[in-house]
């Protein structure tokens, strides 16, 4: 287990965090049906994130960003290594970890589409442990922050993609967590909605001293929003630093070239 003393400013620390998935070979090779295949999605990740920082997990699809995010959110058990989130041990204090974080993904189906935005927030507020009184005070506040006060009474299914994403942020804000994990939060959004979300992250979350860990494969987004990024490739953390610092590293030239090409292809 890691010792967490003298880490007052560090809200997230991982130590050789690894996640391997194992499955049987199965019908793909009937002769070796019971042979096990192991795939390492996250390999020996060592990471330290400070309070109030916007940290980007930058890498192409399949780099391990989402798996790492889910491990840190307690949704997947790590295979080895350890981590502390807000001072709580990821393996042994899962409830306290969950009370300190929010996960905002690009998955718009994480809400009940036939209920209104307001009903959804009331439901999740209770699951986050807010009392009726706290929820009654908090829900209008978070709706105002994300600019959804007027639309709160409408069914979730009637919202645009941008509005759904803003409701995702509103849900994350409910319990006033220390760390916001965001998994490709701008996926599917138009440029204006992307700009609005970036502005919300910058002006609302970091202004309140919140920490944001954002998985993205957009270099431009990482450069605009993140204080530092961790470059992930094939499950490993290859480098950590500001985008500007890392862009000057010759050993990462191929990687940046790939991401720039990816960004350009997305724009077209």
């Amino acid at each position: 287990m890691i010792q967490y003393s003298n880490m007052a400013d560090t809200v997230l620390q991982t130590n050789n965090l690894t996640k391997e998935f194992t499955r049987l070979r199965g019908l793909s090779s009937p002769r070796n049906f019971f042979d096990k295949i192991t795939f390492t999605a996250v390999r020996d990740v060592n990471l330290s994130v400070k309070r109030g920082e916007i940290f980007g997990l930058l890498g192409p699809n399949g780099a391990g960003k989402t798996t790492l995010t889910k491990v840190l959110c307690t949704l997947i058990l790590p295979s080895s290594g350890s981590a502390s989130v807000c001072g709580f041990d990821l393996a042994r204090q899962q409830s306290r970890v969950k009370a300190s974080i929010a996960l905002i993904s690009s998955e718009e189906r994480s809400f009940y589409w036939r209920l209104s935005g307001l009903r959804n927030l009331e439901f999740f507020a209770t699951l986050y442990g807010l009392s009726g009184r706290q929820a009654a005070e908090r829900i209008p506040e978070v709706l105002e922050v994300v600019g959804m006060t007027e639309a709160a009474g409408r069914r979730f299914q009637e919202y645009s993609t941008g509005m759904k994403q803003r409701m995702g942020l509103a849900r994350g804000l409910l319990a006033d967590p220390e760390i916001f994990f965001m998994d490709e939060p701008t996926k599917g959004l138009d440029p204006l909605a992307v700009k609005e979300l970036h502005s919300l992250i910058r002006n609302q979350l970091t202004a309140q001293g919140k920490t944001v860990i954002m998985a993205t494969h957009h270099l431009a987004e990482a450069e605009q929003v993140c204080d530092r990024v961790g470059i992930m490739s094939r499950g490993s953390m290859r480098a950590v630093g500001s985008v500007r610092e890392l862009a000057g590293d010759d050993s990462l030239a191929d990687f940046f070239h790939f991401l720039v090409k990816d960004d350009l292809s997305m724009e077209h």
């Binding site: 959110c73 307690t74 949704l75 306290r96 969950k98 996960l103 993904s105 809400f111 442990g129």
Partner: peptide
């Protein structure tokens, strides 16, 4: 997933 990530 949205429920599992809450402290419930």
């Amino acid at each position: 997933e949205a429920m599992l990530v809450t402290p419930t």
